[in-house]
Design a protein around this nucleic acid. Structure first.
Length: 258
DNA sequence: TTTCTCACA
DNA sequence: TGTGAGAA
């Protein structure tokens, strides 16, 4: 009985595809022990170890091209360096995954928030928030790709964060992104009249804004700041319809509420 | 089942 | 750096 195994047996054993094993052979990193009369590649225990080493080096981020050099000529010191490098890469990947998980949690949290508060007026306390202004545009301009490309400062993870549109009554709207520390400007802490809404058409948004002002007037709230429109486009992605998720906010002076 | 080759992401 | 498909 032969002690060697066929390519599919090796593939099964090592949890890789037959294709991949042949690919390693083509690149000169893994040769079969011998080729049988029927032209089948046959592999022994030595090749099993070799393949295990190749797969480990691939996990460490070594290219197939470099694996040959690694396996034939690397010193202990060079392997040490490689391990250090891979460790740093793994740290970066961990960070990336942690950020992704935070984002997912945020979406889940915001989704729940949105569902329970949609189309209801609320008073929300907001701590001082700092912003970096991102795009300035005319109050009747629509956000378009050209504007984004030409005017916008480069931003990481576009549309994965809340975008604040600040309507301060002038002829321009400022699109801002929240920052941790002091940025270009800030919104004061205080009570904000808030409403979350789902919008299909742009004119619906204008109606919502009007309604918010009407409601504020009816409640005799004194408006003490600009209109803030928060766009959460990442929420729209995860809802079934093509609706856009917005929140409208107005700073009010609660002391003057009758 | 395996081999080889070409196309494709 | 692989994978998929097709013919032998």
């Amino acid at each position: 009985m032969k002690s060697e195994i066929t390519i599919s047996e090796l593939a099964n054993l090592m949890n890789v595809s037959v294709h991949q094993i042949r690919y390693f052979e083509e690149k000169g990193v893994l040769q079969p022990a011998y080729t049988d009369n029927n032209q089948y590649r046959m592999y022994g225990i030595e090749q099993v170890y070799q393949l295990a080493h190749i797969l480990l080096l691939r996990k460490l981020g070594v290219s197939v091209q470099s694996i040959k050099i690694c396996m034939t000529s690397y010193s202990v010191d060079q392997y040490r360096q490689l391990l250090h490098y891979s460790s740093r890469e793994a740290d970066a990947e961990l960070l990336r995954l942690k950020e992704l998980q935070q984002f997912i949690k945020k979406v889940l949290h915001e989704q729940q928030n949105f569902n329970s508060e949609s189309n209801q007026y609320q008073i929300k306390w907001r701590d001082t928030t700092y912003f970096e202004s991102w795009i300035e545009m005319g109050s009747h301009t629509m956000l378009n790709a050209k504007l984004l490309a030409e005017q916008a400062k480069r931003v990481l993870n576009l549309f994965e964060t809340d975008i604040h549109y600040i309507y301060d009554g002038s002829s321009t709207i400022t699109l801002c992104l929240e920052t941790q520390g002091p940025g270009d400007f800030s919104l004061p802490e205080g009570n904000y009249l808030s409403m979350q809404c789902l919008i299909l058409e742009d004119d619906e948004l204008e109606q919502m804004i009007e309604q918010l002002y009407d409601y504020a007037a009816a409640q005799s709230y004194t408006i003490a700041g600009p209109l803030i429109l928060i766009e959460r486009s990442y929420l729209s992605l995860f809802s079934s319809k093509n609706e856009l998720h917005y929140e409208l906010q107005l700073l009010i002076e609660s002391a003057t509420k009758s």
